[in-house]
Design a protein around this nucleic acid. Structure first.
Lengths: 247, 247
DNA sequence: CCTCTGTTGCGAACAGCGTACCGCAATGGC
DNA sequence: GCCATTGCGGTACGCTGTTCGCAACAGAGG
């Protein structure tokens, strides 16, 4: 450690190595895949440009040759992930097909827990997102030829799916952010919930916590989806376009 | 402007003023309100601890006497905003009341565009959020006494609301992030959409863009909400507990 | 084979972030 | 009028996204 970093001192020619063996170009796909891997494994907060570059073995600034900004990278990650499972086969039965689309979306979000928070503030205009949307629209046109109505149906179903899965993910996300283990987290939330119940200000919530039989997230999802599809069927089903009648 | 910021140069004793007149304590409420104002006006990206402190006229480090971290501040902001409108009056008609709750939630999210992205990754356990949830549960118990089922109903409705409004906000959020004006944004999106349609790969989406009559976000919201409530009524309405029958 | 030129990698620097430490000034009690 | 206590906030650390400009290479032309 003889006087580190004070004198640049032109090194002897023969002692300077060829820096790095000139890594091959990372390419956009590699960057995006690496970023997705990091976000999946360690959460969005661990996803920095420096980190991606390090995992790729390249310099940080090099990434900007392929991706304009971190924001663009996130958009690319989202769209890549939307396309990772092929489109589901369509049976022609609109209800089964829309269910399948919904389950697909949920599976994608659960596989990539960062999707929920990231998708919230962005319009999904990527090629894969659009393909998914187009498939969903196709299934809905089996219910009604009116494209406006079909879009309303698809939007309703997808909104339900997104909202539900976002809440499913919220707990795990918060725990991860806090850095606690699952047990520590439970032990830190439990006393608060106990106080909330003991306060008596939230009687129904208390009843829910104490009495409810937890049916598990899958059943909850299926229940809500069934409700939404029932409602769509009731409101759009028979008629061609009387769907906008109110309440 | 004589050589600004180059020489610290110990100032003469009599020229050093009493620094700052010792501002009064900011208090948690003031901090949270200031933060909300900044986020509402300039977006989440403009919300930094330094910025909040500056707007409050206090030192940055002082905030940490009242708020443990930026993350805690965000949680406090969320819960404050959830409580800013009193609970809606309950009529006893579950459908009208649940609609009212849904409209309330939407109004809150639209008033604070940052709520969408922030709420996505957090469980809402604050006092005001819990009160809202409790009110929603109460309205649902008018539909069914089964608390588990009532919670499923409420979760379904709220998931739809959250998902829909999140998408409503997404466009505006993206535009804001890009820093473009509304016109610039439109001009930058339009050619892409044109290309997408011209590609022919998304026929239904193309049909939607070209043929659909835009009914406006309010009507879209009401349509989806009516669907969800229809579905809930169909699945829970008459029976007491047969709600989990599938598909 | 050499040189010249366009492309690409990336070190270093910059502004700004959240947060921890701790000296110092103002305040309350005597 | 003095001192002990309190708590504000300047400063600093390590991190972030992003830019600039040079170094190193590839391929073409002589």
């Amino acid at each position: 450690m003889t006087d580190p970093g004070k004198e640049p001192a032109p090194v002897l020619v023969w002692s300077k190595d060829r820096r790095t063996p000139r890594r091959q170009a990372p390419s956009v796909e590699q960057i995006v895949h690496t970023a997705i891997r990091i976000a999946d494994a360690e959460g969005l907060s661990a996803l920095s440009m420096r980190r991606v570059a390090a995992d790729l073995g390249s310099g940080t600034a090099s990434l900007y040759r392929y991706v304009a900004s971190r924001d663009d990278l996130l958009d690319l990650m989202i769209d890549t992930v939307q396309g990772e499972a092929g489109p589901p086969p369509l049976s022609g039965d609109w209800r089964a097909d829309l269910s399948e689309v919904a389950r697909h979306v949920r599976a994608t979000m659960l596989r990539h827990p960062w999707l929920g928070s990231e998708l919230a503030g962005r319009p999904a205009l990527g090629a894969n997102s659009l393909r998914r949307y187009d498939v969903a629209l196709t299934t809905a046109t089996a219910l009604t030829p009116d494209i406006t109505l079909a879009a309303n149906v698809v939007d309703t179903v997808l909104a339900y799916v997104f909202g539900t899965v976002a809440r499913e993910l919220a707990d795990e996300q918060a725990r991860r952010r806090s850095g606690l283990t699952e047990d520590q987290w439970r032990d830190s939330v439990a006393p608060y919930i106990r106080d909330v119940i003991a306060s008596g200000a939230y009687p129904q919530f208390a009843r829910l916590v104490l009495d409810a039989e937890d049916t598990g997230p899958d059943q909850r999802f299926d229940f809500g989806l069934a409700c939404v599809l029932d409602g769509v069927a009731a409101r759009v089903g028979g008629t061609g376009s009387a769907g906008l009648a109110h309440s």
